[in-house]
């Protein structure tokens, strides 16, 4: 996503706020897939992801009149999405009686077989998707926001409401873990797999 897209985002938001519905449709189409991919791969559950995705847009629509262009629209939107995911997990925690914790993202096991959202067009990418899926939630959030939102690290820090150093630290750990996971999964060095 280039700088023009960010400028267009701001113009589309202005246009939508002046009452033009078509502008909202353009914004939605631009972010539908990146945002849903982020949410689904963070929550690892399609039904929950669809709920959180809708909730994100409802909150965004409500908050758009207060949106200021100082922060880029993508990081603003992904920040809302991240909060919706966290809310979803908190609700899950209180609903379950078996001590299900807020860090369930790290412990939830797939029911067997590979979830459809990890299916990729080739084996190398499938390995990479699975390795990302195995990362701790806070590292996965940074990686996914970078991968699907193409959001700069400084803006990820804003979206996740933490310091830049925290985000950079999580990313470094994420890459170290990916290297390790890929080695374990396919027995090869990360650089070899990716090159």
């Amino acid at each position: 996503m280039g700088m023009n897209d960010f400028q267009t985002d701001a113009r589309l938001v202005q246009s939508y706020l002046s009452g033009k519905q078509a502008a909202f449709e353009k914004i939605y189409d631009r972010y539908e897939r990146p945002l849903f991919s982020y949410i689904l791969k963070l929550l690892r559950d399609r039904t929950a992801a669809e709920d959180a995705f809708q909730q994100t847009w409802m909150q965004a629509v409500k908050a758009l009149p207060a949106y200021r262009e100082q922060s880029r629209f993508s990081s603003w939107l992904f920040g809302i999405a991240h909060n919706c995911c966290m809310d979803h997990l908190r609700r899950e925690t209180t609903r379950r009686e078996d001590g299900f914790q807020a860090d369930q993202l790290d412990r939830r096991e797939h029911d067997g077989g590979m979830p459809d959202y990890l299916a990729e067009k080739n084996e190398e990418l499938t390995h990479l998707a699975r390795a990302i899926d195995q990362l701790p939630a806070e590292q996965r959030a940074v990686v996914l926001m970078r991968v699907h939102g193409e959001i700069p690290f400084k803006d990820i820090a804003e979206a996740l409401d933490c310091s830049l150093n925290t985000v950079l630290g999580r990313m470094h750990y994420a890459v170290k873990n990916l290297r390790k996971l890929l080695k374990e999964n396919i027995g090869e060095d990360l650089t070899h797999v990716l090159s």
Partner: peptide, 21 residues
Amino acid sequence: TEGLAELSPGPEIRERVLAAG
């Protein structure tokens, strides 16, 4: 990672969100 697939929600969700917008 740029080659990783991006996924879509169901089409009915698009309709709902656009209606809210």
